[in-house]
Every structure is written in C-alpha cells, then in structure tokens.
Amino acid sequence: MTALVRHRLFWPAAVLLLLLAANVAFTPGFLSIEMKDGHLYGSLIDIFRFGAPLILVAIGMTLVIATGGIDLSVGSVVAISGALACLHISGLPDQNDVGGVLTAVGLALGLALVLGAWNGFLVAGIGIQPIIATLIIMVAGRGLAQLITDGQIVTVNSASYKLIGGGYWLTLPFSILIVLAVLALTAFLTRRLALGLLVESIGGNATASRLAGIRSRGLTVAVYAFCALCAGIAGLMISSNVSSADGNNAGLWIELDAILAVVIGGTSLMGGRFSLGGTVLGALVIQTLTTTIYSIGIPPETTLLFKALVVTVVCLVQSPAFREKVFQRRGRRRPAAPQATDDEKVEVPA
C-alpha cells in the first residue's frame, strides 16, 4: 500500500476520482454514456472532447520542460493557427472544398512549426533564457493573431473544417482520435526509441550531454518546434469547434493550464525524467475540475480562485516532503538523552 501511495500517479488519479464522485453526487447520471445517431454522448465524452486541446498542448509542454525549459508562447500559437486557417477558409469560393481546407491546415501548422523553431533557436542557438525567449512570441504572437484577423472574429461555414474539433468519426469525437494518435506517436518516439532518453539527458545536465556527443542544440530546437506544432493543432480544434477564430481570446492562458497539467502529472520543472501518462492525467484533472465548477454552480467570478486552490492542494499532497511533514506519526517520541554513569560524573571543585 505504501508503494502505491508513493507512486507519482496515485494522487492525481485519486483527485480525478474524487472530482468524478463529486459530480455524480450533484448529477446522478454524470457517468452515463449513450449512443445517439451513431455517436457517443455523455459528460465523460465531453470532458475528453473539450480537454483535447489542453492535452495536446500539455504533451508538447512535457517535452519542453523535460529539457529544462518552458514555453509561454503556446497560447499565442493557438490563436495564430486558428486565425490563419479560418482566414484562408473564409476566402475560398467553396468553404467545403477539402483541398482548400487541407491547404489552410497546412499553412497554419507550417507557421506554428516556424514559430516553435524560432523559440528553440533563441534558447539553444543564442542562449536566451526559455522564459524570456518564449515570452517574445507570447506577447507579439497575440498581436500577430489580431493582425491576421484585422481585430475581428473571422467566421467560417465549412463542414470539412468542423470535423477537426466538432465532428465525429467511428462513434467518437474526431478530436479525441487526434489526441490518441499524437500521444501514441510521441510515446513511441520517446519510449521505444532513444529520443526520450536524449531529451531527459539534456534536462538533467545539458553540458554533460553535449560532451557525451548528443546534439543538444538541434534536439532542443526540435522539441520546441514539436510543442508549437501541438499548440497549432489545438488551435485548429478550438477554432473549428466554434467555426470562428478570435485572435484575442483563443487559447488565452492555456499555457498556464498546460504547465499545471505537467506538474500535476509528476514531471519536475527542473527537467529530466518526464511522464506522458501523468501529463494526460493532469490535463484530465484540470478539465474535470472546470466541468465540476460549472456543474455544481460555483459563481463565475470565483472560478479561477477555486481552481487555483484545488490545484495548490493537489501539488502539495503530491509533494513527498510536504506529506512527510504533515502526515508523520505524532506518536513518536525522541529518545531520552543517555544518563551519565557514576564513573562518567565529574565533580566540580568548589
């Protein structure tokens, strides 16, 4: 039992089950899933569907944090990707043209890759601190997204584009299938190949990994580019789900939720070892928490405060040092100091 409690995924899983139980208490049919018109519906399906963009961004953020870095620009990349795709589709003679939609998707993801590679170049090539290097795109990228949309909300009416974030395939939301594909590919590259070990070595000791012959700079650029690619896909999901692009609000603060998901999943912000399964679990905790807040009727003005308190409790309970200080046995008594024997007693002269 002790080994189970000490597992890195125990507490996130326990909190997730607790949140689901709270929802069941307020909504008895919360866990029910039903089939309608060949599609699966239910609150659990909605958690996965609405949490798909966060899971994608968190997967990319996991690899960046594993290298000892951080990416604050993912929210802006989300906005840029959705804005560019919707702008291109809105100018098509036929918005349902599959070729035109694929071109829009390619342009959006290509720009996301360029932005991610730029972040990696600033970090690995020039040596700028990751939090500063990515802060540039975080600020300027949001302005670029509004420049693309001309400060307006660009709406589209494309069934082909709607499939990405709001469509269904094989009874499941298509966004869930995209997440599963990206997760499977990432897990294969990092756990079945040596790529994951190389990423962890950079985060553990970048200098030692470079001296060992690892091309840390190129790998770091690739990791930041992959993170931006995940954010670009998330931007396509968000914009296609609502059939519009909002350069000002799309992906706002998703970078903070992604970082929290990574931390809840047990990956250290110092870099090194990472857990993709823990990250997915952490993202589901955050999305379930958001669903719980709305389902139990917490006032909207206190939503962020409630969310911050719950995440803080999860992180504290997950900390071995905190648990040792708080949950240690209070019945323990310190051993009494040994008494001196008659031979050891020293007479003090008057």
Rank of each mutant, 00 (worst) to 15 (best):
L4I: 14
V5F: 04
R6C: 00
H7D: 13
H7M: 03
P12L: 07
A14D: 08
F26M: 11
T27A: 11
P28K: 09
L31F: 12
S32G: 10
I33A: 10
G38R: 11
H39K: 14
H39V: 15
L40C: 12
G42A: 08
P53N: 01
L54C: 10
I55P: 03
M61S: 14
M61Q: 14
M61D: 13
V64A: 12
I65F: 09
I70K: 04
L72W: 15
L72F: 13
V74D: 04
V78Q: 08
G82L: 08
L84A: 15
C86H: 09
L87S: 14
G91S: 08
D97G: 12
L102E: 03
T103Y: 13
L107G: 03
G110A: 02
G110I: 02
A117R: 05
N119A: 10
L122I: 04
G127Q: 06
I131F: 15
A133L: 09
T134F: 00
I136D: 06
I137E: 01
I137D: 03
M138K: 10
R142V: 02
R142G: 05
A145I: 03
Q146Y: 07
I148C: 05
D150R: 05
V156M: 05
Y161W: 14
L163W: 13
G166K: 04
G166D: 03
G166S: 03
V179C: 07
L180D: 13
A184P: 10
A184S: 13
L195R: 05
E200H: 13
S201T: 15
I202D: 07
N205A: 11
N205K: 06
A208I: 09
A212R: 09
G213N: 00
G213R: 04
R217L: 00
R217W: 05
V223I: 15
Y224G: 01
A228D: 02
C230D: 00
G235I: 15
S243F: 02
A245W: 01
A250K: 11
G251Y: 01
L252D: 00
W253E: 06
A258L: 07
A261C: 05
S268N: 04
S268V: 09
G271E: 07
S275K: 10
G277R: 03
G278A: 03
T279R: 11
V280I: 14
L281W: 05
A283R: 06
L284E: 09
I286E: 07
Q287E: 12
L289I: 05
G297L: 07
P299L: 09
P299M: 04
A308G: 14
T312P: 02
V313D: 10
V314R: 05
P320D: 02
P320T: 03
R329T: 11
G331I: 05
P335N: 09
P335L: 14
A337I: 12
P338L: 07
Q339G: 04
D342L: 13
D343I: 02
E347H: 06
A350P: 13
